[in-house]
Amino acid sequence: MTLAIGLVIAGTTTTTVFADEHVVKKGDNLWDIANTHDVTVDYLMEKNELESSIIYPEQKLSVQETYKVKKGDTLYRIAKDNNVSVKELKEWNNLQSNLIVIGEELMIKAGSIAIENEQSQPVMASKQQKNKEKSSQTTASPAMKKSETPEGKTLTVTATAYTADCAGCSGITKTGIDLRNDRNAKVIAVDPNVVPLGSKVYVEGYGYAIAGDTGGAIKGNKIDIHVPTKKEAYAWGVRTVKLTIVE
């Protein structure tokens, strides 16, 4: 007799999803929180509808979900509904088989399928959209060239991304730049003790920019680059790049 995938024992038909929270403490940043809970920064931003990587003490962040199995569920269906794989569900919950029981709580994190789909979105953009984005980037920094190697003090930094295109965002940087008036403005948030505010910089993979903003989570060799949309912020994710202070 063959055991059917996701065999379920009869019982209640109620579905319950619990969200586990992390309360932000002073000095916390999304990168460290993501590592602690074995998820990605992109997952935390999307899960909590964050428009930038800036977080504040006492802020509550949902870091993962616990799904309560209901009648008729299978691992395949749960995985598909949550955009993860059956293999990941089994690894996260130490399952040795596909057997699940009604009322059992399954931990759900950011899966590789979800990450792959999210990262592929810019690639699937239409040719017209790509041309528009290319034109915007050229307008924002006409002197930028791929082969260009600017001179100046160079640092290795961790770079995340944010956008002013969000409900309730003021769009005004620490130095007074209004990002709402120019969504394509090349501006980065920095730790002024590392990169002086007002500096002209060159960021690998981003181009020339102005160090015009700060952030509570931007300490040491960390920066936050400004991009036009939330989708582009997700696509950027977290990267280790070279930053050169040009002037």
Results as ranks from 00 to 15, higher is better:
Asp182Pro: 04
Ser126Arg: 09
Met45His: 09
Val8Met: 05
Tyr208Lys: 11
Arg183Trp: 09
Leu179Ala: 00
Val238Tyr: 09
Ser62Lys: 12
Lys60Cys: 05
Lys200Glu: 12
Asn98Thr: 14
Ala4Gly: 04
Gln137Leu: 14
Leu89Trp: 10
Ser53Asn: 13
Ile5Ser: 10
Glu88Ser: 11
Glu133Pro: 07
Ser199Glu: 05
Tyr208His: 11
Asp165Phe: 01
Thr229Glu: 08
Thr173Pro: 02
Glu133Lys: 06
Val238Cys: 15
Gly207Tyr: 06
Gly220Glu: 14
Lys60Met: 09
Ile225Lys: 06
Lys153Cys: 01
Tyr234Lys: 08
Ile172Gly: 00
Lys47His: 05
Thr36Met: 04
Ile223Pro: 04
Asp182Val: 07
Val194Gly: 07
Ile33Val: 12
Ala79Arg: 10
Asp213Ser: 11
Ala161Gly: 12
Ser62Gln: 07
Gly6His: 00
Ala110Trp: 06
Pro122Asn: 15
Ser135Val: 02
Asn35Gly: 13
Ala189Cys: 06
Pro142Ile: 14
Asp28Asn: 05
Glu133Ala: 13
Gln137Met: 15
Met1Gly: 04
Glu49Asp: 14
Tyr206His: 02
Gly220Val: 10
Val24Trp: 07
Leu75Thr: 03
Gly215Trp: 01
Asn35Met: 11
Tyr234Pro: 03
Trp92Asp: 10
Pro196Val: 07
Glu118Leu: 14
Ile113Val: 15
Leu95Tyr: 12
Met107Gly: 05
Val195Arg: 08
Asp42Gly: 12
Cys166Gln: 10
Met1Phe: 03
Lys145Gln: 05
Asp20Leu: 13
Lys130Met: 13
Lys145Thr: 08
Glu49Gly: 09
Lys26Asn: 15
Gly72Phe: 07
Ile55Pro: 01
Val63Tyr: 08
Trp92Ser: 06
Pro228Ser: 14
Pro192Tyr: 00
Ala125Tyr: 13
Ile54Asp: 12
Ala209Val: 00
Ile245Ala: 06
Val39Asn: 08
Ile9Val: 04
Asn193Leu: 01
Glu133Trp: 14
Ala110Ser: 13
Gln128His: 09
Ala19Trp: 02
Asn181Phe: 11
Val195Thr: 09
His22Ala: 02
Asn131Phe: 12
